[in-house]
């Protein structure tokens, strides 16, 4: 046997022994793991999105877990960046909203706890009396909480909570005959009591007999209101009644800012406190005469 043949035989034995050892030892799984990790490090893009599960099929659990964790980490980082952008956008929108609300004279909600609720039921016997909303005690709704609605982009008084159940609440509408809210006309400053009439229109009573009113005058909640924050739009004067010689005051008819017949969602505010009631609203002039509630 010459030298080359002997070398070939020894090499065959050595290589075969190494190869068989690799075959017998559980190296395949480790190689697969290393391969999967190397493939992911070299080109991570195919592992993102919907293709992750398909790409990890057959990959040993350890490597699959690492790759999945890294993909999730990158996804979480991406979402965090998006959240930061949203937060910045939200802050800008909030600033815009506050500025525009101040310009429009709608500033009743600052610092107030609010909760959106859907209108789920109306009283068919008394259409203008009350509505049921899908939020109750469990959602933080409290008795006597003021309820406002949105008409277009304007907030307006709807009523107040008169009954609280665990998951629902009854809202007594301002149009009900038992409802009343102290209000005033900012242009002239006269204050009166807006009451329901059981119809779509409201009546504003106890206005001075010598005061002059114009159809279209805006009516806002008064700082003296026990339930509502000051400066909320109630409606606008739609009709001025002829003066009654037997009465010491005059009455105007008020068309509501928020038509309750169209109401789908409402905003329930935390009940008004003395601190809320203290500062008068910015744009309208202060009332000249006191009123009820």
């Amino acid at each position: 046997m010459n030298r080359d043949t002997r070398a070939a035989n020894y090499l065959l034995l050595a290589f075969s022994a190494v190869a068989l050892t690799l075959l017998i030892l559980p190296t395949t799984g480790k190689v697969r793991q290393a391969r999967a990790l190397a493939a992911y490090v070299v080109e991570p893009l195919p592992y993102h999105g919907d293709r992750l599960a398909a790409r990890l099929e057959g990959v040993p659990e350890g490597a699959a877990r690492l790759i999945r964790a890294d993909v999730e980490l990158l996804e979480a980082r991406r979402r965090l960046e998006e959240a930061e952008l949203l937060r910045a956008e939200n802050a800008a929108l909030k600033a815009d909203n506050e500025r525009l609300s101040a310009a429009a004279g709608v500033k009743p909600l600052a610092g107030r706890t609010v909760r959106w609720a859907r209108v789920m039921e109306r009283d068919p016997q008394n259409w203008y009396r009350s509505v049921m909303i899908d939020a109750g005690e469990e959602q933080g709704i409290r008795l006597n909480a003021p309820v406002v609605g949105v008409e277009g982009s304007t907030l307006g008084v709807v009523g107040r909570v008169t009954e609280v159940n665990p998951r629902t609440a009854k809202v007594l509408l301002l149009s009900d005959e038992l409802s009343a809210v102290a209000a005033y006309l900012p242009g002239q400053g006269w204050e009166g009591l807006v009451t329901g009439q059981g119809t779509a229109l409201l009546a504003m009573k106890y206005l001075p007999v010598d005061a002059k009113f114009t159809v279209g005058d805006e009516v806002y909640t008064s700082p003296t209101s026990a339930s509502f924050p000051p400066g909320l739009p109630v409606g606008r004067v739609s009709r001025v009644f002829e003066r009654d010689a037997f009465l010491a005051y005059q009455t105007v008819e008020v068309e509501r800012t928020v038509a309750t017949a169209k109401l789908k969602e409402v905003l329930v505010l935390a009940p008004v406190t003395e601190a809320d009631a203290a500062p008068p609203p910015e744009p309208p002039a202060p009332p000249k005469k006191g009123g009820a509630r």
Binding site: V18, L23, G58
Partner: peptide, 10 residues
């Protein structure tokens, strides 16, 4: 290949 590591070498 990711299968039977060492088979091709052998």
């Amino acid at each position: 290949s990711g299968h039977v590591f060492g088979a091709n070498a052998l």
